[in-house]
Amino acid sequence: MVEGHFGRTTRIRAMSEEQRTKDFLSRIDAKETIEPKEWMPERYREQLVRMMSQHAHSEIVGMLPEGNWITRAPSLRRKIALIAKVQDEAGHGHYIYSAVETLGVSREEVYRKLLDGSAKYSHIFNYPTTSWADIGMIGWLVDGAAIINQTMLARCSYGPYARAMLRICKEENFHKKQGMEIVSRLCRGTAAQKAMAQESFDRWWWPTLMMFGLPDEKSKNTAELMQFGIKLRSNDELRQRFIDMNVKQAQEFGLTIPDPDLYFDEDSGHWQIGPIPWEEFFEVLKGNGPCNRERLDAKIRAHEEGRWVREAASAFAEKRAKRRAKQ
């Protein structure tokens, strides 16, 4: 019989910290879902706040590189689809910020950490979008990588995060299809369009492989996240899945993969890639990527310029509440 929430709360109150943690981890092992009001180790809460806020920030900052092409999308259909897509990202960010709030941190507090530079977001959004093909590549590769990650997170131990991922994955799948359609169109198009696609692919291939994080032996969070049931697969496993899936896809598009060391390993049945340029990854994380400054500045500017609007809205809401109270 599954223990009810009330029964569990009473039982847990009587335990020592150590017993509680042990009990918590056995629930994780039993694949139980943890819900907001339930007891959780402080470290579990911290890791979730860190990961979920990074995720929400990535959605919000990710609007910028794609938004960069809204005003120059080449057809009405593409323009409309791109706005709808970027709008979806705003919705995802909003949804995940709300999920973070279930851990006792306000959206304002979390957002402030993005603006003051103390919270991270996916390194991938610090790369520039310099041609229309980048919009296709982001949909196909970046959203494709995100889906692999998020499909795993949809089965993670924290209920609100898992449910958010389930919903978000559905829309991301649609975005990926949209991206692949753009790339496919370019690859079947004029010589200039094909060249545009290849040039863009050359720039995005390696950075998207870095999206899965450092190799397992160097990732400092992976072991703990796996113990907590937040991560169910390692960085390298997810990366390999992405590579196997997309080498084939790139070949179908007629794109050349910018990796002279790439080969198919008959024994393992997997594609093997050459060395990932991790120095570049560290530089971007340190804030020295091509667009780190621009991305953060854009969000700070929007926040500053919107301050008087938010103040007006709360002043009005207060006045209205007072007037209603008098009636």
Binding site: G67, I70, Q87, H94, E305, V309
Partner: peptide
């Protein structure tokens, strides 16, 4: 209106302006 996308005063308003634009 689409020029506002990503630059609105709140996330909610970003979404609303994009909707009207669409």
């Amino acid at each position: 209106l689409s020029e506002w996308c990503g630059h609105g005063p709140t996330i909610e308003e970003d979404i609303a302006l994009s909707n009207i634009s669409l």
